[in-house]
Write a protein that binds this DNA or RNA. Structure first.
Lengths: 347, 347
DNA sequence: GCCGCCCTCTAAAGCGCTTTAGGTACGGTT
DNA sequence: AACCGTACCTAAAGCGCTTTAGAGGGCGGC
């Protein structure tokens, strides 16, 4: 057997990372053979492969992600740009769960996640996407927090990279999107309240610009219509904005359906200020079933949605798009109403 | 003026990203000239530079981050590995604020953040660091959630990449670390309670394995000693673990200092279960001043620490380490006690 | 009017991989 | 004995940039 020899003296004294050439030299083969071996390609004798892998192991060599990215024309990383105020993210149960689902999928595929957290301002957000794409830092992009209308969407096709939207765009887009079954969870909350005997049910949602807030609002409206009830008052507010939230309590509503647990706590606080008891005088449902729901007193009846699963599905769809395949089927598990102490029969 | 011409026919029909050669051709210069121009190096005539930049603009060209990474031997990205249970992260005010601070620094330096979110399990966590480093995906690593002792630390020197620890390692390490002034905030809480007249002050902290929990515990102890008081009971618990938290209330303590707002809410709930009023029968202080503090009822007296500033400083130290410079000075702004309704004079 | 210098720009190598196009040796056919 | 396949493996190009060495031209000084 002829051994492959290079003239370069093997100065392995350097402390920098070994290269494929170092491994090749040590295993007595060409760099190409090393490449074939580590990538599990045919054309390498089993014992040669073993020798190569051993050499790589001994040297602690792993192929440079950068060099690979250059030759394979893909970085094995995807980007997620979040253009939300950090303060708004703090109590958001969605973000962390969604992120962990994304990670689960990406890690399995050996992809990395590039996270960009920006102060809000759509223009900035879109520009960030485009910069990431133009620099070729990522193979694809994940979009979330869809607004209606969303100014980012028209610009998306210019990005020239696979993009998957996590959410349901209002306007028609040529970009694939993935949505989970969060809104139907509202129906469960309404039905629960109706079955308790409530006839006047209000809605308290977050910023109306968000599509997911609108979807929940619509679900609330539909569920009321299905129950033959008229829609009670609707208020949009930020967490803790108790003045505005309090206006909900001026009407006849005996129950409030909220689009988040933090908002539900805001209602509870506002009710208490007015001397109303929860759930005696007012029933309140939260959403997301965050740890908050248990900490609140009374503990909040809430809706649990599997956002990790959603994140995993969105990431899977993106990986498929990158591979040029159709997105895998996603059947979200149905949201689950968790009954706790914040709902009861009306007085 | 001689124009640079390549023999390659300019087939600009392809829809793939333009390369430096395309820009060079369009501007009538060599690729090297383009490189010099976009990197603001001397040796390019002003009008040539303008012509090159215009060509780049017209083509929508940005240098490939991948190719750059290969030649410059740096990726312009840093990694952050979080090995915490997502459920634990959900109510954590630290995480999001810290992240936004990191982003602020990185964005200014045109660095990207590679985030890895892992299920806990230290072995896994360290391996993730090493894989990221070995593949050359990042130029440096940020470590947080320091434990005592932390099994990751001894392995850190093998990583062969700049690392900065955000937190205070118990064992001596040769890796630079950055810490913020969170623990002294506890002293403020204790002093506040003492000034209200409390003599028996308990401590409720999160998992004792975390160094930051220990630091807060120590600060509590020191503050009590300084006030000439004996240390009340200490309990470590997870958010919502009210059974264990309740044991705090069996003793003589008239006040509880907590290491997070979520724990403070847990105490409040446990107290209420036993028929104790907050703050009438029991004063409680939270920590972090998360949005929770305002939503809770009573609103929580809490300690605000600027974690964004901390994240920014940690990232700055890492960038300095990458550049081979000493870390910039960091003087954290002092924590601020925010007095709200959960503390009052003892009965 | 020639030399030398500076300014501007190009040629070409090289970063660490992957991949295509062979090339060699060995065994089995005709 | 010449031939063909197959199995392994190597040479070399190329990914898109940066960078070093050096080429060419204009200009001032003598």
């Amino acid at each position: 057997m002829r051994r492959y020899v290079t003239l370069r003296t093997a100065v392995e004294t350097s402390r920098s990372r070994p290269t494929i050439a170092d491994v090749a030299r040590r295993a007595g083969v060409s760099p190409a053979a090393v490449s074939f071996a580590v990538n599990d390609r045919p054309g390498v004798a089993p014992e040669t492969r073993a020798r190569i892998l051993a050499a790589a192991q001994e040297l602690g060599w792993r192929p440079s992600a950068t060099a690979r990215a250059l030759t394979e024309a893909r970085t094995r990383s995807v980007g997620l740009v979040l253009a939300r105020d950090p303060a708004h993210l703090e109590l958001d149960a969605f973000f962390v769960r969604f992120l962990s689902g994304i990670e689960r999928t990406l890690a399995a595929a050996d992809y990395a996640l590039l996270l960009k957290l920006l102060p809000p301002g759509i223009e900035v957000g879109a520009a960030a996407y485009e910069r990431l794409a133009a620099a070729g830092r990522v193979d694809g992009l994940l979009l979330t927090d869809v607004e209606r209308p969303d100014p980012r969407l028209p610009r998306l096709e210019r990005v020239g990279l696979p993009v998957v939207i996590a959410g349901r765009p209002e306007q028609p887009v040529r970009v694939p999107w993935v949505e989970t079954e969060h809104a139907p969870g509202i129906a469960g909350a309404v039905e629960h309240l109706v079955s308790l005997g409530h006839r006047d049910i209000a809605f308290l949602g977050g910023a109306p610009a968000y599509e997911f807030v609108q979807a929940r609002l619509a679900a609330w409206r539909d569920a009321l219509a299905a129950a033959g009830l008229r829609a009670g008052p609707v208020v949009h507010a930020a967490d803790g904005e108790s003045a505005r939230v309090g206006t909900l309590l001026d009407g006849p509503a005996s129950a409030v359906v909220c689009s988040s647990d933090a908002l539900a706590m805001t209602v509870v606080a506002a009710a208490r200020e007015r001397g109303l008891q929860v759930p005696g005088d007012l029933s309140v449902t939260g959403f997301d079933d965050s740890p908050l729901a248990l900490l609140a007193s009374p503990a909040l009846t809430s809706v649990r949605v599997d956002y990790a699963e959603f994140g995993a599905a969105a990431a899977a769809a993106l990986l498929a798009a990158i591979a040029g395949e159709p997105p895998p089927a996603f059947t979200p598990s149905p949201p689950r109403l968790v009954r706790r102490a914040s709902t009861a029969q009306p007085a």
